[in-house]
């Protein structure tokens, strides 16, 4: 084909609608500004410990949501047990530090690799399951892992948990963990972008849309699914390792909490599954929503109810996330919010 003809038919390289549509340039610029703000945030005068703490939590959640998006958003497998990878990452990092006496970074690598290997081992059999069956198998494995970690006292410390050394110098601790979380989330976004421009990205979306057709068209679906699962485990495992060292304490009940899975899914869903920035932005939206609701309904013991009500509202009104509204693809209106119900009610 000659150069002239190529110009005649411009090709949209937007990989699989991953990027903002419509106001692409403006929004990308806004995002870059926001990222820059986050990058210099600890240097700002009002960056108190409270804000660093909150943002570290949000960024860790964003990283996990970005990871969940690989398997749940792009590949379309409703993984409900990603907290298992978080827990394995936390235990892997913690145990390497206290039992092997390794430094934080090598331990973090061990934790993350352990999470990935685990994802590959369980992924090979369970990624053959579809729909509800896959979802519940992941819940079951995550719950079982929590129970095993809790009762395997000689290895994991059981109900007493394990205590990690403090980060030193301790006065930089807040900044250190903030930047770890920031880099992880940014790395996750870059990884998403990188994959979407590779064949792997196309195979994930093809599998989501029609697995049989994808398979027949030459896509090694098993490999692609296991990779999606393993990469989501990598993100959660790294987040778990960072979290463990940050809190200097690992307890099965805490790091295998099913609420964490729920939070990552919710962040991804709020922002928009199967989009690059959706899970990242969703993590912020999630925290803002929770904080606002807690503020207006200050009954401490009812936080879970608030979370539940948010999920119900999101599922009923905007399960495709807010990304369509933010990117200008759709106008935010009562009508747009009712569209979901019109489509899916009986």
């Amino acid at each position: 084909m000659s150069d002239k003809e190529k110009k005649k038919a411009p090709i949209r390289y937007s990989p699989l609608d991953g990027l903002f549509k419509g106001r692409q340039g403006v929004l990308l610029g806004l995002f870059a500004l926001f990222a820059l703000f986050l990058a210099i945030f600890p240097l700002l005068p009002f960056a108190s410990g409270f804000w660093l703490n909150t943002l570290t939590l949000i960024l860790l959640l964003a990283a996990m949501a970005i990871g969940w998006n690989f398997i749940g958003g792009y590949t379309g497998y409703a993984a409900f047990g990603n907290v298992a990878f978080f827990g394995i990452g936390a235990y892997g990092t913690g145990l390497s530090m206290i039992r092997l006496g390794l430094g934080f970074f090598p331990s973090l690598m061990i934790g993350a690799v352990a999470a990935m290997v685990f994802a590959i081992l369980i992924g090979l059999p369970i990624l053959r399951l579809k729909g509800h069956y896959f979802a519940i198998a992941t819940v079951a494995i995550a719950t079982a892992m929590g129970e095993i970690a809790d009762s395997w006292t000689s290895f994991t410390g059981g109900a007493a948990g394990i205590t990690l050394p403090f980060f030193s110098p301790i006065e930089w601790s807040g900044q250190f963990f903030y930047y770890m979380a920031f880099l992880l989330a940014m790395g996750g976004l870059l990884l998403t972008w990188f994959i979407l421009n590779r064949k792997m990205g196309y195979s994930w979306v093809a599998i989501r849309e029609d697995e049989d057709a994808a398979n027949m068209m030459g896509i090694n679906t098993t490999w692609a699914k296991v990779m999606a699962f393993a990469l989501s485990a990598l993100m959660a495992g790294l987040a778990g390792g960072i979290y463990a060292y940050w809190k200097t304490f690992v307890l099965a009940e805490e790091v295998f909490k099913i609420e964490y899975t729920l939070q990552m899914i919710l962040a991804a869903v709020l922002g928009g599954t199967g989009t690059i920035f959706g899970p990242f932005i969703g993590a912020f939206i999630y925290y803002i929503l929770i904080t606002l609701l807690v503020f207006f309904l200050p009954v401490g013991q009812l936080h879970a109810t608030i979370l539940g009500v948010i999920i119900i509202l999101v599922m009923v009104f905007t399960p495709k996330g807010l990304m369509d509204f933010l990117s200008g693809k759709k106008k935010l209106s009562v009508n747009a919010l009712l569209e979901n119900i019109r489509t899916y009610r009986v």
């Binding site: 409703a78 409900f80 009500v309 999920i311 119900i312 599922m315 399960p319 899916y344």
Partner: peptide, 19 residues
Amino acid sequence: VIRAPLLVTFLLTFAMEIV
């Protein structure tokens, strides 16, 4: 939302349980 994709009803009933 009963005819929505699996993730929606799954999360919906999960949220009901939490509440």
